Simulated assay, not measured.
Amino acid sequence: MRIIDLSSPVDAAGFEPDPVVHEVLGPKEAAVHMSEEMRDHFGIEFDPSELPEGEFLSLDRLQLTTHTGTHVDAPSHYGTRASYREGPPRHIDELPLDWFFRPAVVLDVSERGTGAVGADVIERELERVGHTLAPMDIVLLRTGADAWAGTPKYFTDFTGLDASAVHLLLDRGVRVIGTDAFSLDAPFGDIIARYRATGDRSVLWPAHMIGRDREYCQIERLAGLDRLPVAHGFRLACFPVRVAGAGAGWARAVALLDE
Results as ranks from 00 to 15, higher is better:
57 L>H: 15
103 P>V: 03
3 I>P: 00
182 F>D: 05
9 P>F: 04
72 V>K: 02
236 L>D: 07
253 A>W: 06
66 T>Y: 10
170 L>S: 05
171 D>R: 04
138 I>R: 01
31 A>I: 03
243 V>P: 09
32 V>T: 13
176 V>F: 00
229 P>G: 07
77 H>A: 12
194 R>L: 02
222 L>M: 13
247 G>S: 11
140 L>H: 03
198 T>F: 05
69 G>V: 01
229 P>L: 06
98 D>I: 01
194 R>M: 02
166 V>P: 02
223 A>F: 03
258 D>A: 14
204 L>I: 15
76 S>I: 06
7 S>G: 06
147 A>D: 08
221 R>N: 11
169 L>G: 07
34 M>F: 08
254 V>Y: 03
17 P>G: 09
89 P>W: 02
37 E>P: 00
189 G>L: 10
177 I>G: 00
86 E>C: 06
186 A>W: 00
53 E>S: 12
218 Q>T: 12
83 S>C: 01
64 L>E: 02
214 R>W: 08
135 P>M: 06
248 A>S: 14
156 T>D: 12
122 I>P: 09
110 S>N: 03
112 R>P: 00
149 A>R: 15
220 E>C: 13
69 G>D: 05
63 Q>F: 13
245 G>W: 04
64 L>Q: 04
57 L>E: 15
22 H>P: 02
93 D>G: 08
209 M>W: 01
205 W>Y: 14
87 G>P: 10
3 I>L: 14
46 F>H: 11
113 G>I: 02
128 R>Q: 11
56 F>S: 11
83 S>E: 11
18 D>E: 12
15 F>K: 12
236 L>S: 05
102 R>V: 05
141 L>A: 05
225 L>T: 04
5 D>C: 12
26 G>L: 11
201 R>D: 15
29 E>T: 01
30 A>I: 03
73 D>F: 07
42 F>I: 08
253 A>M: 12
210 I>Q: 09
67 H>W: 02
111 E>G: 15
39 R>P: 15
76 S>Y: 01
12 A>L: 07
42 F>P: 01
